[in-house]
Design a protein around this nucleic acid. Structure first.
Lengths: 123, 123
DNA sequence: CTGAATCCGTATCGATACTG
DNA sequence: CAGTATCGATACGGATTCAG
């Protein structure tokens, strides 16, 4: 149980990489897309609008490497590949969902703040 | 109260920008650094190890524009500037803290997963 | 369908030097 | 102390093309 004392406030702490990963443009959305169960590549692609094949592949590979997602390829024609959250991946759902909720709940306020701020600058 | 139906899964939804902002390298740490109360520029700088002046300034400006942080400059010599979370900013503390906790709790597992994955690749 | 590989513009970020 | 300004590397990410 004894874990090293990870501290993202320290320079080269690996947790920073982890925060970075979580924070990239697509990770949050992809994990959200897998939240309700396994999904195929094309399904995720449709769900996360605007993601390119390249970035989706890359994101999934990283998630796989980090043990958050499993990849299962079925030997069929045409190919079918399913991605699924691991237990670890599922444990990330809740904090990420909270973030998504916060973004939704406060988007209007933030937008308003930006407008005011920009007007004050111009004036 | 009726808010538009923000949906980060849709292409040009502003919530994506918000998630991007939250997800950048420094935002999470800076907000964490301000979680316990107001702090000066240099204080934040020391707390968030490795952040450059440029990036700290940029991050604070963005947070200010988004209404998450207030900036108060005192007309003294030498100058003193304090940053403080707004109510909105404070509402972000909890979800971000959860994320930070997750990163700490699972860093070891992720590191292990990476090692296994990379070994499997080499083999 | 599920990718891998390539090209390439751009945004990001760090380092450095300078200012009030 | 608290910034601003500038330069340069490089990582990110989009579009396109090709393949199993």
């Amino acid at each position: 149980m004894d874990q090293p004392e990870w501290d993202p406030y320290v320079r080269e702490c690996p947790t920073r990489q982890l925060l970075d990963r979580i924070g990239d443009r697509w990770t949050v959305l992809v994990i959200g897309s897998l939240a309700d169960g396994p999904r195929r590549f094309s399904g995720i692609s449709r769900s996360v609008q605007g993601v390119s094949q390249k970035m989706l592949t890359l994101t999934l590979r990283r998630l796989e490497r980090d043990g958050l997602v499993t990849r299962t390829a079925y030997a069929e024609v045409p190919p079918r590949v399913e991605y699924e959250l691991t237990e670890l991946g599922r444990s990330l759902r809740e904090p990420l969902k909270a973030l998504e909720m916060w973004a939704k709940d406060n988007m209007a306020t933030v937008l308003e703040s930006r407008t005011h701020h920009d007007e004050a600058m111009t004036a």
